[in-house]
């Protein structure tokens, strides 16, 4: 299971790449392996103010619908519009071209509360899969 170091992770299997006050958000390879073929991603709108832990979108695979939670609080700067036509990029490349949206963090300190790669790897080991 690929868990890039340098990213921060949530127990709900989102990742965040922190650059200054900007966070790029996506879902982990583990999440993708659980969901299967992703066919539709519904993301928050650009400009929306979101709060950490809030359900802010949905990810649909052929068989299932899952909620996406905000890992951090802030204002949505940009969404990955490519996913509208090519949602399979989340399957193919969850940490690169499958990114979902970018956030201007309103509480940058929240990022410190997320897991690093090794803690997330340990978290995965505790799950029954």
């Amino acid at each position: 299971m690929n868990i890039p170091s340098g990213l921060r992770y949530t127990k709900d299997h989102e990742w965040a790449k922190i650059e200054g006050t900007t966070a790029t958000i996506g879902i982990t390879e583990f999440a993708v392996s659980q969901l299967g073929d992703i066919t539709l991603v519904e993301m928050p709108k650009v400009g929306a103010e979101i709060k950490a832990g809030q359900a802010i979108g949905t990810i649909e695979s052929v068989k299932a619908v899952s909620d996406m939670y905000a890992p951090l609080s802030g204002k949505v700067l940009e969404i990955n519009a490519e996913l509208d036509n090519a949602p399979e990029q989340v399957n193919d490349s969850p940490y690169e071209s499958g990114w979902m949206f970018k956030l201007h963090m309103s509480k940058p300190a929240e990022a410190e509360g997320l897991m690093d790669a090794s803690s997330y790897a340990k978290h995965l080991e505790t799950l029954d899969h």
Binding site: G36, D37, V62, N91
Partner: peptide
């Protein structure tokens, strides 16, 4: 089995 390599494939 619900799937092997993936539903679409």
């Amino acid at each position: 089995p619900v799937q092997f390599e993936g539903i679409i494939a």
